[in-house]
Computed example of a mutant assay.
Amino acid sequence: MHDDEWVPVYPENCHRVEGPFFHGTRADLSVGDLLTAGFTSNYDDRVVMNHVYFTSVPKGAGLAAEMARGAGRPRVYVVAPTGAFEDDPNVTNKKFPGNPTRSYRSASPLRIVGELESWEPYDAEFIRELRRRVEDGLGEIIN
């Protein structure tokens, strides 16, 4: 198997995936806090989340932080899963084979272990267009 060959991530084999991992939001949190499922989505107030989402790509977490609703500034936290996780079905195998965004979800909490001060941003126009698509309901969340 080649290093770039995708292997689906399930709770049974997630221990093979190495961090660091990141979560983007506008919430003001501290090291040691837990991100847990059961709260409304960062993108749609009508959806209560069954999972907590994260990625091993800082730029992707930065995009999630920029897209998140709320008054706080965009933040990217370094997180550690406290339980099993799997590929994020919202992006895995959607436009590209595998999980090129290296995005995951867990029903277990994520522990905040740090915060990134900066990350590579996306183009502001791209963020505006993506935000418009989310607001128009063009991106259903698989929860």
Score class of each variant (00 low, 15 high):
residue 20 P to F: 05
residue 22 F to Y: 14
residue 24 G to H: 02
residue 25 T to S: 09
residue 25 T to E: 07
residue 25 T to D: 04
residue 26 R to M: 09
residue 26 R to A: 10
residue 28 D to T: 08
residue 29 L to C: 15
residue 29 L to F: 04
residue 30 S to G: 12
residue 31 V to Q: 15
residue 32 G to I: 13
residue 33 D to Q: 12
residue 33 D to N: 13
residue 35 L to Y: 08
residue 38 G to Q: 14
residue 38 G to L: 08
residue 39 F to Q: 09
residue 39 F to S: 14
residue 41 S to I: 09
residue 41 S to Q: 12
residue 46 R to G: 05
residue 47 V to H: 05
residue 48 V to E: 11
residue 51 H to M: 02
residue 53 Y to A: 14
residue 53 Y to T: 10
residue 56 S to Y: 05
residue 56 S to I: 03
residue 56 S to P: 01
residue 56 S to H: 00
residue 57 V to F: 03
residue 59 K to Q: 02
residue 61 A to W: 01
residue 62 G to P: 06
residue 64 A to C: 11
residue 64 A to F: 01
residue 64 A to V: 00
residue 65 A to P: 08
residue 68 A to W: 01
residue 68 A to E: 08
residue 71 A to L: 04
residue 72 G to W: 01
residue 73 R to F: 04
residue 74 P to D: 00
residue 75 R to L: 00
residue 76 V to G: 02
residue 78 V to S: 08
residue 79 V to D: 04
residue 80 A to R: 11
residue 82 T to M: 05
residue 82 T to I: 06
residue 85 F to Y: 07
residue 92 T to R: 15
residue 94 K to L: 09
residue 94 K to R: 08
residue 95 K to D: 12
residue 96 F to D: 11
residue 97 P to V: 12
residue 98 G to V: 08
residue 102 R to S: 10
residue 105 R to C: 03
residue 108 S to V: 10
residue 109 P to K: 04
residue 110 L to D: 04
residue 110 L to W: 01
residue 111 R to Q: 11
residue 113 V to G: 05
residue 114 G to K: 13
residue 118 S to K: 10
residue 121 P to Q: 05
residue 122 Y to E: 05
residue 123 D to C: 13
residue 125 E to G: 08
residue 127 I to F: 10
residue 127 I to E: 02
residue 130 L to Y: 14
residue 132 R to A: 14
residue 133 R to D: 12
residue 133 R to F: 14
residue 136 D to L: 15
residue 136 D to P: 12
residue 136 D to Q: 13
residue 137 G to M: 14
